[in-house]
Nucleic acid binder design. Sequence first.
DNA 1: TGTTTATGTCAAAAGTTTTTTACATTTAGC
DNA 2: GCTAAATGTAAAAAACTTTTGACATAAACA
Lengths: 62, 62
Amino acid sequence: MKNKILEHRKGKGFTQDALAKKCNVSRQTINAIENDRYDPTLQLAFKIARVLNTTVDNVFKP
Amino acid sequence: MKNKILEHRKGKGFTQDALAKKCNVSRQTINAIENDRYDPTLQLAFKIARVLNTTVDNVFKP
DNA sequence: TGTTTATGTCAAAAGTTTTTTACATTTAGC
DNA sequence: GCTAAATGTAAAAAACTTTTGACATAAACA
């Protein structure tokens, strides 16, 4: 699953750690997802999208 | 996680079984998700949305 | 260079989803 | 009311994912 987390994250000036904290997950989780090591749960996908001020469909592409 | 699978599914005239087959999962999986017993993987969420001709953000709400 | 901050990666644990088999209940049409 | 189709549910196992702590590497920059 491709994603545009990096793009949106940088756009907001967030570090992985900052984004992680806002999503209440570990930095490694954000890193792993950002680098396509695995897909987030649907819940976390929504959380990430919300924190990045966008939609799930916008951040992730199958 | 709330969802509008039933609504969209009926709109297309699909049974749970039909939707399941189109998504390559078991009928019980669709049934369980439709009835909020658990959330699908992000992959499956996208598949369901695609089969129902809509978006993940449209079908699911945190 | 040395220090700090940011990112990358592992292995294992923890947790979740999915499948299967089976049966119960409901709904729709005849 | 009967029948067939559709839906609901359960338990257990299999498959898969996510998370975490720990450590490694890289980047920034004074």
